[in-house]
Write a protein that binds this DNA or RNA. Structure first.
Lengths: 255, 255
DNA sequence: ACAAAAGTGTTATGTCTACACCCATGT
DNA sequence: ACATGGGTGTAGACATAACACTTTTGT
């Protein structure tokens, strides 16, 4: 796909046209990948979204599957293109395939406005079945990239989402619900934090994902009892209170 | 697709050829649906499989998605064609999309043996991404149908499976693992039983799915505490022991 | 000294486990 | 009478929840 500088309207136009021309030879028809990228900042669970052209609508980062590419590899490639990250925790959670989801017209009309109807090729007229993944990233490390079609990226609070195209609102709901169970069963939460963290930060994360409060003292004991946290040195923040321990997540198992 | 009487070899040959010719116009390319059909008899969890032509290999029942058909509807249609059942509990659980899975050659060679290479059309040469569903059925009601490509159907004990084509062994493993969690979280087990059942039968089902024993008395209490079972009259089987109560699963919730 | 956040202790409550015990049924 | 499977009771282990108490830190 390659990055276009979208300040250049003619470049954008040309980029879109070229993409639509080239796509059928490169990608599997009728199949797409959508990714729900979760991040955690300001004690809030965030979702990474892209503004579709100059509309008020946003969409999930997505893409297509190369003809000789594994499905998981396609999802990973798409994420790497958007975030610049190499190691990303990725989980497939749903495949969306109602015919109605492809009947969305806003996106098509906007694209046609940009490139002109004459230049339209039929890649985006097909029905798409979309395989959905969620990703967890430590967003202190992200350097997001804009791209053709998308003029702006933005993190949204997971319960203050903007208007979304297609069935992307439904997909985010499903992703969140899956994340909630995975958080407890597979301890995936650590992928949303930086390498070391305090128990307080970790609790905030759990509260943001599960959308409810936990009792501080019990939370601490419960997570320590899982034997997946290594206690490191204390962190002196300069604040007027006891310095909290830092922790690191240890894979495998201790003791 | 329609049923062919496969006693008639020429009919089979013609059926397959016709299918491959017609398929590209009817179905989405590169996409398939596979279904893991679970049943429960003789206190064992069973999987419904189809023998591929005259090979020793079996495959999951599967099919393709019509161009204007919802994904879930396609899965349901495929199941109805195979089982004759109308109401089927169906759950999407995974989408399999490694390129290697389509490199399977046994199936192709066998088909070519039957219809001759000259008659080969390229429908089955493409790479397929397969959306996988599991289904739970009360197999006292099933009237399975054979079909073109498949000469025999058979229920297999879930841990005594035959050789399987493609990645269908992996898919069954994932289906079982998902069924295990859904059994507890969504109480889907009742779809595998007839309308009424005894606590003993229900326990056997749970043991078959989770592949472990439960303590009878505790199991009973636990399931009754869920408030989803309605106690009916006793069942006199003529056996030399106390007559057990029959239960029925009640949706919604009682008190 | 004090406020703010971190860490530990304790007690009540609920759930899980194992097993003892009794009940109904047909031979 | 007794073997067989069904149903209930209960004590100990373990987990969860609520909250009191102590500790550390910078102002």
């Amino acid at each position: 796909m390659g990055n276009q500088n979208k300040g250049d309207v003619n470049g954008l136009k040309e980029g879109i046209r070229e993409f639509m021309e080239a796509a059928p030879a490169i990608y599997m028809p009728g199949l797409s990948v959508d990714t729900v990228i979760f991040g955690f900042h300001n004690d809030k669970l965030k979702v990474f979204l892209l503004r579709f052209a100059n509309t008020p609508y946003f969409v999930l980062p997505g893409g297509f599957i190369k003809k000789e590419e594994n499905l998981d590899d396609a999802a990973l490639r798409i994420l790497q293109e958007r975030t610049g990250l190499q190691d990303i925790y990725l989980e497939q959670f749903y495949t969306s395939g109602n015919t109605s989801r492809s009947k969305e017209t806003v996106a098509k009309e906007e694209l046609q406005k940009i490139i002109g109807k004459a230049q339209w090729s039929n890649w985006f007229d097909q029905r798409f079945v979309s395989v959905c993944y969620y990703a967890l990233i430590d967003d202190t490390k992200v350097k997001p990239e804009t791209e053709i079609f998308f003029t702006e990226f933005k993190w949204f609070d997971v319960n203050k989402l903007p208007k979304l195209l297609y069935d992307h609102d439904l997909i985010i709901k499903k992703a969140l619900s899956r994340l909630q169970s995975d958080l407890d069963e597979k301890l995936v939460g650590f992928n949303l934090m930086s390498e070391t963290f305090t128990m307080g930060q970790l609790q905030k994360l759990y509260e943001a994902v599960h959308q409810k409060k936990f009792v501080r003292t019990n939370f601490q004991r419960k997570l320590l009892s899982l034997n997946v946290l290594e206690r490191l040195e204390k962190q002196y923040t300069g604040k007027a209170h006891k310095a909290p321990f830092l922790y690191r997540f240890v894979t495998g198992n201790s003791e």
